[in-house]
Design a protein around this nucleic acid. Structure first.
Lengths: 110, 110
DNA sequence: CTCTTGCATCGACACCTGTCAATCTAATCG
DNA sequence: CGATTAGATTGACAGGTGTCGATGCAAGAG
């Protein structure tokens, strides 16, 4: 998984030419925040966090988005390591990635 | 706009049709996170937070970006309320918005 | 005053992103 | 088996975003 808020830059003595936040870490952090920089994904996260577990079919309605669009967003959140889906039978059950639960709650302002 | 207070008031118990996070709030949150979803802006924030106060001219070098680009990013962070610049003489001195200091530290993972 | 300088704005460009219709895949049901 | 269904993938399109060069503008420097 990529560097999230928990993985910090441990740069000791950076001159003014270098930011305390290294370029690579900045890219990783930006990638994580980009994942939650979308209203649909925030509400999607909120729905999953509140319900504990939801399948994609239960997301289309509340979000008011088409199936491909929901799939697109779940993939982005999944790639960011914020949610994880396990396929049971015909449905994919999405849940908040336990390791990122605190981060997600923080993000949602809870 | 979209369905907000009017449609929400109709139903008593927000079923799955409504997210715990309202549409308007989601948009606002997303806008804030979008402001920090860029490597350049994260390092810019990092530089200002570390130095306490910096002028735009001191940012171009470390960031490796042109003057218009730096101005572009400072404006976005400023609009998001994360930094504030006061013009003293010929320079604009940027500092982290005091009210958002904790949030910024959180964002930078400090 | 004129010249210089720090910064904002504009215009243009390439790239990324959110969205949906159509299609494909895999798993269940009859 | 074929029919159905949940979900992923593809293709296409509109709109957003990061970047820089050129220009504008206000405020010190001379």
């Amino acid at each position: 998984m990529s560097a999230t808020a928990s993985t910090m830059a441990a740069t000791c003595c950076a001159s003014l030419t270098e930011a305390p936040l290294a370029e690579a870490d900045a890219v990783a952090l930006a990638h994580t925040y980009a994942a939650v920089a979308d209203p649909v994904r925030l509400r999607l996260l909120s729905l999953i966090a509140a319900a504990g577990e939801l399948c994609s079919c239960d997301l289309m309605g509340p979000l008011g988005k088409s199936q491909p669009t929901v799939s697109h967003h779940t993939k982005i959140l999944s790639d960011a390591g914020l949610i994880a889906g396990d396929k049971r039978g015909r449905w994919v059950h999405w849940r908040v990635e336990p390791a990122q639960a605190a981060f997600v709650q923080q993000i949602l302002g809870t």
